[in-house]
Amino acid sequence: MSMADPVDIIEHAASTGQWRHYDGSALPASLAAALEVFAEQGYHGTTIRQVAGRAGLSVPGLYHHYPSKQALLAGIVDASMDELLSRSFAAEREAGDEPLARYDAVIESLLRFHMHRRNQAFVTSSELRSLEPEARARHIDQRDRQQRQVDTIVVDGANAGVFAAEYPLDAARAAVTMCVAVASWYRPGGAMSVDELVPRYAELARRLVGYRPS
């Protein structure tokens, strides 16, 4: 199955305001195959031969694109975080200047990503320990950038009197953690759809930061 270039998907989401929409996988075929097997068996329980078979390639053919199993994992993590950040910042830009609108948009973006890209989110989080130092440091930097985005919005809201959380940075971290955790339990076809869950969890996120209607 052919996959769209993740860069094209990300640029489209950022440039046309389509950050809410997910049309299939944004991963190349080899990474999509590796993601499926890593999600099923774990990184250390997966062989290159299994990934190649899932991708419909020979082992040499897979090595032509990704020279090692570690390169596959790093590729998944990098692509996932690039897409997550692109969608988050596109959502914030589209929301305007008001802290509440920015917060709602970014929380919605995080929730949608962790449901629509739940396998990517799960593997990215659970296999952090399996990344080699350079790739791990790159991932942590990207993860911290995401957290700083939400931190800034919540502090802006607290300074404006819109959010009443006694500890704004702790509240911001709790909100992000809640969004990330959705990937561990959400399943397509469950009792509630993405569009039903987003407003419920967005309301919970507002409560975490002590939103006070004027």
Rank of each mutant, 00 (worst) to 15 (best):
E92I: 07
P6F: 02
T152P: 08
P168W: 01
C179Q: 04
A4L: 04
E40Y: 00
R87C: 08
Y63D: 01
E166S: 05
I48Q: 12
G190V: 03
Y22L: 00
P6Y: 01
R206L: 11
E11S: 12
S126Q: 07
V77G: 03
G61R: 03
R148P: 00
A90C: 14
H21I: 01
N119V: 05
A105L: 10
S80C: 14
R102N: 03
R118L: 02
I48D: 05
M1C: 06
H139T: 03
S130Y: 09
A205G: 00
Y103C: 01
T46I: 03
G210S: 09
F163N: 05
A34H: 06
A165P: 01
L27P: 04
E203P: 11
E92H: 10
L197N: 04
F122E: 10
H139E: 06
L35N: 00
T124G: 05
D156E: 12
Y43Q: 06
A52D: 04
A172N: 15
R87L: 14
A175R: 04
A165F: 03
S109A: 14
Q70R: 13
G210E: 04
L128K: 02
S193L: 08
D78Y: 00
P28W: 02
Y63I: 02
E98M: 07
H64Q: 15
E40T: 04
Q147T: 05
S109V: 11
V198F: 03
A32Q: 01
G53V: 10
D141Y: 07
M1K: 10
R200E: 09
A160V: 12
E83I: 08
G17P: 15
Q70N: 09
G45S: 11
A164L: 12
R20K: 05
E166C: 08
E108T: 06
E166G: 12
A205I: 07
A137T: 08
I153R: 09
A164M: 13
A158Y: 06
R207K: 13
K69L: 14
E83V: 00
R129M: 12
Q18A: 15
F163K: 04
A74R: 05
G53N: 13
P188K: 11
R112V: 00
